[in-house]
Design a protein around this nucleic acid. Structure first.
Lengths: 209, 209, 209, 209
DNA sequence: TGTTAAGCGAGACGGTACGTCAGGTCTTGCT
DNA sequence: AGCAAGACCTGACGTACCGTCTCGCTTAACA
């Protein structure tokens, strides 16, 4: 349909593009995003600095593309979906905490977060890929629980997902105490409000046997 | 007790200290923390650059001290405590979202967050002041609700506080949709788990009358 | 007589050649030769940069061709030839000084000079055109004077021409004081050596009446 | 008398100044001024690039200061002063031509000339030193000749000096043919104008015996 | 009344990275 | 083969900011 105006001039070299992304990824993971300069990326990619600047407006943009294109070794965003929300949530939270305790990942998370903050376009780009993955994982977990009859109907699962992501994200900056996980799961499962069932009966953080 | 060996030499000038903090604060708020250089702070404070470096190890430290000493105009961290947790939570969340929609505050938040990330000492310093304030405010809100019998006993209020702070912090980076507030509050109040009371009865986000 | 092997492929476009020369000339005169880049020339000529490089090895070559082909507005190199060497020389020197006081010309002169310095081929090319013109003009002036009996026979007029050109060229860099013209003319006419006629009689810079 | 406002701040390091001048001089002479970058100067001087830029606005300024301060090996500007103008002029011109045939010097001359053209301040600076030296040398030569009675009185020696400098300078760009020297000297000594003495008698370029 | 130790203003300095510019070359597809 | 378009490499540019240093001067407590 649309002839799309045949591209003129020498086409962009796909080879150099991946060279840059590869070089950048390795540097980001070796010395950290903050310590990586555009010069260093270009040098390692054996590419002229101008070629980097031609295609990416900033280091943050390179970082984002690296992340989106899967050049960074990031923890996988899967979540168990056994149908038991307490167990699944606990497992997912612990795994997430683990990832954040890996300094390499923590630094990448921070850098990606900062990149998001610096440019809404990058934020959207990263959100489109990562948050979506995360959301799907968590959603799968919650759906399984729902199917098992373990969730109350009518819940806005997106909100729950947001809450979980936020909690883990916050752990990047603030200290995260894994001892709090059971209490957190309990709050998520039962809420904080007094209901007919719970009033007067101190809730235990352990599953009632 | 110990006379602490009276300090020798010319004592630190309190005047220059506040000059620096004032200059830094105004620059942080005018052009943003990222765009503010130490040179600029020193120049505006009519102080030698070395004087800044003598007392603060980094720009982040200056920023933190500005925040802690109240030189930055930040939104107050109070929360209503009427005893009605649904109303209080909703009001507090809305107010928080408002603050984050102010670009000036948003940038400061980001900068403070980054400062926390860069240095654990600064993180602790900021936490001691802000998180404490926030925690107290939220705690007051929750305590009032508890006293009114609106909360289930046995809840780990610290965990709830953390969750709320995390949610709002995350909104700095990710987009926050205020339309989600009712659903969020509902999840917090009732939890997501199926209980005897709720099974089969779709939960409404409004309090059942 | 050799048919010179008919050229294969698309022949050189005369149209683009003049486009380049025109664009270059206008840029040279508008912003100066030093401030003109090949990219800018190509862009203004609506020609690919490679097309410039295909036919001219350097910016200096383009400049030289502009000059030789008459695309640059340069002062005309005529000289009066009334037969009165004092008057003619004075007039020609004054006119030359005038041209050098026009910043536009001065810059072009400098650029042409530098181009000559950078490449002997260009130097020869420019010399063939300009110096020849100049030499002819001056030669005409001197010949007329000689015919009028105002010059001593046996003079190497080429040397005189060289001397005059050198004097004017030097004025490009060093400051030229037009007040010196009479003295200069006097030196040229009478020489500096003591002769039978002049010894003891202070030479005046004005023609003795 | 004048307190001259005591200099404040860390004083300029004389050591680095000479380091820069030395490094620049050696580079200028090794690879030529055009091929020398500020980065290279700073690197060889083991000095930060900013330190160069702090004190010299351009490479031309560095070059000029190198020349003025005597860091460049330039031909000495002396001239014989035997009292015989023909011999002295001839000797001086030949020596000058020699210098210009040394590629190293020729390039330096060109660079200095270009530097003069780029900035009037530099031009004045160089003129103050070099032209003055040259003028003195030539003047000495002419004065000796005058004292020996070989020069006509009333000559503007400055003009002659200018003429000579111009002639040699022009030889930088245009080809200089040493075979012309005798004719040139003859013109200078006797002038080109017909005088009572010379009319009808073809002037020889050799001293009449 | 010095003497001594530190604070301080001013600004030079080494260092690193920045983002841009210009000169040339190369790679498409079209003429 | 000429040519437009534009990617690409190379190398230099001039600037910004960092954190340190080196002056001379000031301000106190100490001797």
């Amino acid at each position: 349909m649309s002839p799309a105006t045949a591209p003129r001039g020498r086409p962009r070299s796909a080879e150099r593009r991946v060279a840059v992304l590869r070089a950048a990824s390795s540097l980001f993971q070796e010395v950290g995003a903050a310590q990586t300069s555009i010069d260093a990326i270009a040098a390692r990619a054996r590419v002229a600095k101008q070629t980097v600047y031609r295609w990416w407006p900033s280091k943050a943009a390179v970082l984002a593309e690296c992340a989106v294109e899967g050049y960074l070794t990031l923890p996988s965003f899967h979540a168990p979906a056994t149908g038991d929300p307490r167990a699944d949530l606990t497992a997912w939270l612990e795994e997430s905490y683990d990832a954040l305790e890996t300094p390499r990942f923590l630094e990448l998370f921070r850098a990606l977060n900062e990149a998001s903050g610096s440019d809404p376009v990058i934020a959207a780009q990263l959100d489109r890929v990562f948050a979506r993955q995360l959301r799907q994982a968590i959603r799968g977990m919650l759906d399984a629980a729902f199917d098992a009859g373990a969730l109350r109907p009518g819940i806005d699962l997106d909100v729950v997902t947001q809450l979980l992501i936020a909690h883990v994200s916050a752990a990047v900056t603030q200290r995260a105490d894994r001892g709090d996980i059971p209490a957190l799961v309990a709050v998520l499962l039962h809420g904080i409000g007094a209901g007919p069932r719970s009033r007067g009966a101190p809730m235990d953080t352990e599953e009632p046997r």
